[in-house]
Every structure is written in structure tokens, then in C-alpha cells.
Design a protein around this nucleic acid. Structure first.
Lengths: 146, 146
DNA sequence: TACTATATAGTAATAATTCCTATTTGTAAA
DNA sequence: TTTACAAATAGGAATTATTACTATATAGTA
């Protein structure tokens, strides 16, 4: 017996409840589409995939929902984060602390981070020319202004 | 004697020559503005700063030039990279290899990366909730299709 | 079952990025 | 030097991504 649209994992219901998000058919489908993705889909890609199941879902719903899911931590946003491009002058190796609320990036240097070994596994993907550690969290300013 | 517009560092001329970029007044000013930035300016911010020196420089020139500089490696692009937002399903800790040409991101897991210690220095910026190592380079597909 | 805050579809507005074209300019070669 | 020409520029337009708006529908609670 083939189940066409099984319910999402319990974590989905738990997290939504925790954060007061209602369970809608749209959200269930969007969540499942992201969970089964093997790539890192854009909002537009998720939109196209969900439309095969919910034929009149709107882009805005998909987009907003993805952001909501990101906020409650059931999916992730990968770099780039879709904001404006930002440039930096310093070509010396350094690392970043990034605030997930206000998106400010703080630079720091760290010698041991500079020298982390590249796993063999990664060599098959390509030739590594830059290493960067990105630490993410909420900056002190944002956690105060809460 | 005050020098108003000293020439950029030699590395600027060397790298431009290496990559066949002509030395223009616009490029000199743009380069210097980025080099003296203490923040991570957007293209628009660089545009506004350069206009104080070259009053009729166009946004397009600034934007293109910043991208050129990034390509030849005299300035850097920080995350986000200004592309579309991309989402990923896996909330488990993992790391990324990112191709600087085609922007594909390859996931990999690495236990020792998961456990890198957070420097004390970083604690003053905020509370770290996520660690990610981003290795950048050119993926094997892109280096072939060269 | 009825109520109400939340979510939705559809669309419009805004913002960021990229493209286009006529003109100008840096640089290599004469 | 001067010349020739590929490359770069200004100005603006087009495209693409993101976010906002509003009337309607719906999930979840009382």
C-alpha cells in the first residue's frame, strides 16, 4: 500500500506548535519538499516543486513560509543569504561571526582556524583556495534589544 | 605637504596587469575606498563614497569593478553573496565546499570541524549557536570546463 | 459550531542586479 | 610621440529577486 502524502516528521508539528505556527496543507507540502531536496533549492525552485502538488499555491506563501521555517529552525539558509553583496578589503585570512538577526558580520583572526586541515573527502569536490570559519548566533546588540 | 590621492598599493597595479585590467582613475578610487573601509560595504555604499571623489561615476562602473576586483582576488566578497536565498533541509551540523565560479555548494560532514573551540574573543560579539566551516575554491567541473 | 487571529492567493511595489549602447580612454605598437 | 583599437565608462533601461498589500479563506480554540 502506497502512501501518497504521509505526514511530516513529528518535529515539524512540535516546532510549529512551540512557535504558534498553524499547520496548513501548504506548510506541510513546503516542508516535505525541502526535506527531500538533495540540492540547496532557491525559493523559486521550492515553489515550482510545490505547485505540482498544490497547483495554485502562491510564490509569496512559499517564500514567507521558508523564512518562517528558517526562523523556527526546522530548515536552514545557506550562504549566500540573498542579501546585498558585501565586499571586504582584507585579503588576509580571517573568520566571521555573523548575527542571524541583523546580519552584521564581525571579523576576527585566529591562527588555529587558519590551519585546519582539509579533509581528503573534500578534495574530490575541487581545489580549496580559501578556508573560513563562520560562527553564527545573535549579536550582543540584538539580544539586548529583544 | 599633503598628498590628496596617493596611488594605491603596488599589489593593485601588479594584479591588474596580470589579469589585463586597465588602470583607470575610477578603478584606483574604487580600490582605495574599499581598502580603507572598516565595515563590509555594499556596492551601493562604495558607489556613494566614490561619488564624493569622482562626482559622476556610475553605479554600474562601481558594481562591475567590484566584481572584477573580486575575480582577480584583490578584494573579497563576504557571505551573503547576493545571490538568491538558498535553503537546505538538514539541520544536522555540516560544512560546505563552495565553488567560487558556479556557486554550487557541496555539503560534507566532519566531526572535528563540529568541535572546533570558539575563541574567547568571539564571545564579546555574541552567543554562538552554529559553527560552519566554509572551504572555497574551484570545483572540478569548473576547472575542467576552463 | 462559531469565533478570531493567522495564513493564503493574487498582485503590486520595491530593491538589487545585470544588460545595453554610444562615447571615451588606456595601452601597445608604429 | 602619435595612432589604432580593445576595453572601460556613463547613463539609463531591463530583468530578476524580494517584500508588501488586501480581500478572502482557514486552523485551532472556546
Amino acid at each position: 500500500m502506497k502512501i501518497m502524502n504521509p505526514d511530516p516528521a513529528p518535529v515539524f508539528f512540535e516546532k510549529c506548535a512551540q512557535h504558534g505556527l498553524k499547520i496548513t496543507p501548504q506548510r506541510k507540502v513546503i516542508y516535505q519538499e525541502v526535506m527531500k531536496a538533495k540540492d540547496h533549492p532557491t525559493a523559486d525552485a521550492v515553489y515550482k516543486r510545490t505547485r505540482k502538488i498544490l497547483s495554485n499555491i502562491s510564490f509569496d506563501t512559499v517564500y514567507r513560509t521558508l523564512l518562517s521555517f528558517t526562523e523556527i529552525g526546522i530548515i536552514n539558509l545557506v550562504e549566500g543569504y540573498g542579501e546585498q553583496k558585501r565586499f571586504e578589503p582584507d585579503p588576509a585570512p580571517h573568520h566571521h561571526f555573523r548575527c542571524i538577526k541583523c546580519h552584521t558580520i564581525f571579523d576576527f583572526e585566529n591562527d588555529s582556524y587558519d590551519h585546519i586541515p582539509v579533509p581528503d573527502e573534500v578534495r574530490k569536490y575541487g581545489n580549496v583556495t580559501n578556508k573560513r570559519v563562520v560562527l553564527e548566533g545573535i549579536c550582543s546588540k540584538c539580544s539586548k534589544s529583544k
